[in-house]
């Protein structure tokens, strides 16, 4: 499951282990396409990583903090530290590979 959160909630979530952040916006076409793909991937990685969706329009501070200049952007955190980032739409297999290589 991909959980939609805002920047205040982000401060309070448990960041131990692997977290996958999806930075998006409602009017961004590729973001909309990526959302269902990420949802499927999140099911495959249930229990191994936590998935969050962040609207960059509503949460500009968080987007700035992670240096997001283009969306969709998928950021992988390990124990709260940014370890990898992928920008743009990616097909499911490639997205799965991207997440699993960061586990």
């Amino acid at each position: 499951m991909v959980k939609k959160i805002n920047q205040d909630e982000f401060k309070t979530i448990d960041k131990s282990g692997v977290s996958v952040l999806d930075f998006n916006a409602t009017w961004c076409g590729p973001c909309k396409m990526l959302a269902p793909v990420l949802e499927e991937v999140s099911e495959d990685f249930a229990g191994k990583a936590n998935f969050y969706s962040i609207d960059t329009d509503d949460n500009p501070d968080l987007a700035r903090e992670y240096g997001i200049m283009n969306i969709p952007a998928i950021v992988v955190l390990k124990d709260g530290e940014k370890v990898d980032m992928n920008v743009g739409f990616v097909p499911k297999e490639a997205l799965s590979d991207f997440v699993s290589k960061n586990l």
Binding site: A25, C28, G29, P30, T56, P60, M69, N70, I71, G88
Partner: peptide, 18 residues
Amino acid sequence: FLGRGVSYCATCDAALYK
């Protein structure tokens, strides 16, 4: 630098340019 400062979609990334 594609995706890190270079983009092909202005409408996608507009919000990040406030």
